[in-house]
Design a protein around this nucleic acid. Structure first.
Lengths: 350, 350
DNA sequence: GATCGATATGGGATCGATCTCACAGGGAGA
DNA sequence: TCTCCCTGTGAGATCGATCCCATATCGATC
């Protein structure tokens, strides 16, 4: 591979001049510029990233940690990150934290070793103390997405769980539902509490409180949705609507409902959260609160890029709005004859 | 950050000794080893990746190009790659090629600029000539996955499309179907032809040929599946089974079938290909040919790692077997009374 | 006792860029 | 004319590791 010295020799200038031209700083005469550009072209010269990085202490690599790169949810976020990073000439290395504190620690340290210019973290646990110190010492700027708060972060991107959950709950209440079950996710997540506060707000708007609905905590998984719903059908048969903590929980709930021969939404309404990849493929299509996770990835990356450019971060917390996606799984309550056959509810499909 | 010189000073040895210890080659006395290890511990020393890379011309980064990192299909593959690479102490940078020749070229060049030790490519187009030359000149080993052949590749991992398609078609034939439509993907993919050859083989086993079924070429998309199926229902109402080019096509087909009030599998059977993320979430669960794409990612990475270790590549082409996943969308043909209500077919659910 | 190989260590060149500093020429203003 | 600033260029130090080579010690073998 050609080096900068080869280029400088061919162009009859010094390495410094070539370097200045490439970096776009300092003075370069038109004559020199042309000669160097021709030499670069002819030799097919590409600067050595390592040498540059060693000297300038920049790698042009952004590190990302998500729960699991294989999951469609995070894949979307990574897509958003990559798109944005690419337009700034940076690449992305992602690692999985597998929702495990030590795995997350390992992933972060690995990324720091790679001299990432900055980190975007979607963690499920608080940072281990030793890692916290290492991150701080490295002075690598950090932006977090979703999840819980994380001390070293210079900025945080969250999705507006509260308003999303509020809109979802209001949808159910406006459809006349009063026997509502909320199958929440795990209690270790900030998301969970934010959503609950939104639910409270919606309930309050109808003169109700959380005591007027049934709330069960579990995990963000299909299994939980299925098991909790199966239990629910036996213990609380009066339930007319289920609000699932996320679409996985909703998918599980739907399996249980179908298994019990319940028609959705005629007999029971089902509302999800996330707008996962498969939400629109469920039957009936799942009405859900969309979390624009790709947008979160883009925003987080943009934030990090501007921090790297030395721009002051105006708003250290950016909240991304959710969106209610209307499909077919929520319908009006049938209070008098809950098992009677009804026409499909008049909600817009998407 | 502490450097190797700091460590050597603290331990009272030379940098060379520290370097030898870390690299694990050359001789280091027990005494020196202990002193150095203590110093490393105390200073929290971590070798500078850039400096190491510059000198040794290794980055410990593997570059990957897939069609689209956001897609669940490729996310799975990336997960497999990452898992394997991690255990060898390497990281992965992935870029999207968006099935566009120039985008793919751009992605590859970007990865080469990052001095990736090797590349894993899942491309949809032949490499641009100039890129081919650059890759060759860089001597970076390349492993390709799926898709078409790619000249610079030292090894290739393919998924056994032919056998998979053969097994799928045989399933339909054994269930008694004779009016079969195959909604194929795009004609630019090698996959397409491999699957067709498998289909031919299955047909031959029943004394039939491709002329005895209906084949339509389109693209690997839900839209194609939906439109082609809608057309099919009008123009070839005798069809009793649809074999979709992939699960997206199948999802589209299912939408069209439901839209037309057709019951699956009672009135018409539907078979997919891939075992996409949402295959099991469709209703009915989609019987499909599983492409173990995560395994392909793992195998490709393992191959690349052994090439990087200088091991001779015994088998330059590795074929990964597919697997028939039995769910509920394929049933026996109802030749006499195609619209009569039937019980669910006796196939194993998964 | 000389030779040889294995063990152990350090010195210094090197990878390919960036970046600071010194310096030169030329035009403007005092 | 002298000074000062702007433009333009190159020499050389530097980043933090690796790696080749020289050297030293020690025990075994002839």
């Amino acid at each position: 591979m050609a080096t900068i010295t080869d280029v400088s020799k061919k162009a009859g200038v010094s390495r410094s001049t070539v370097s200045r031209l490439i970096a776009g700083n300092g003075y370069v005469s038109d004559e020199a510029r042309k000669a160097v550009e021709a030499a670069i072209q002819e030799l097919g010269y590409r600067p050595n990233t390592m040498a540059r990085g060693l000297r300038s202490n920049r790698s042009d690599i952004i590190g990302g940690v998500v729960v699991n790169v294989s999951s469609p949810f995070y894949a979307q976020m990574i897509g958003g990150m990559q798109e944005t990073a690419r337009s700034a000439g940076k690449s992305i290395i992602v690692a999985s934290g597998y929702a495990d504190r030590d795995e997350e620690a390992h992933a972060i340290i690995e990324l720091l070793d790679r001299a990432c210019d900055g980190l975007i973290l979607y963690l499920e646990n608080a940072l281990r103390d030793d890692v916290l110190e290492i991150v701080a010492r490295s002075k690598t700027p950090v932006v977090t997405v979703g999840g819980n708060e994380c001390p070293p972060a210079r900025a945080r991107v969250t999705i507006d769980n509260a308003t999303g959950a509020e809109a979802g709950m209001r949808l159910l209440l406006e459809a006349g539902h009063r026997h509502i079950a909320y199958l929440s996710g795990g209690t270790i997540y900030r998301d969970t509490y934010e959503r609950l506060s939104g639910i409270d707000a919606a309930l309050a708007g109808f003169g109700l409180s959380r005591d007027d609905i049934y709330v069960e905590h579990g995990s963000f998984s299909e299994t939980f949705g299925q098991q909790a719903t199966a239990r629910l059908l036996i213990e609380r048969p009066q339930t007319t609507a289920i609000f699932a903590g996320d679409d996985d929980v909703a998918a599980g709930a739907l399996l249980a409902l179908k298994g019990a021969g319940k028609r959705v939404p005629e007999e029971i309404s089902l509302l999800g959260f996330d707008d996962n990849f498969h939400a629109r493929h469920l039957t009936p299509g799942l009405t859900t609160v969309r979390q624009p996770v790709d947008e979160a990835g883009r925003v987080a990356t943009r934030l990090l890029l501007s921090i790297l450019d030395g721009e002051p971060v105006a708003t250290p917390i950016i909240t991304i709005p959710t969106e209610l996606i209307m499909r077919q799984s929520v319908g009006p309550v049938r209070s008098l004859s809950p098992t009677s056959r009804t026409v499909a509810p008049a909600l817009t499909a998407s």
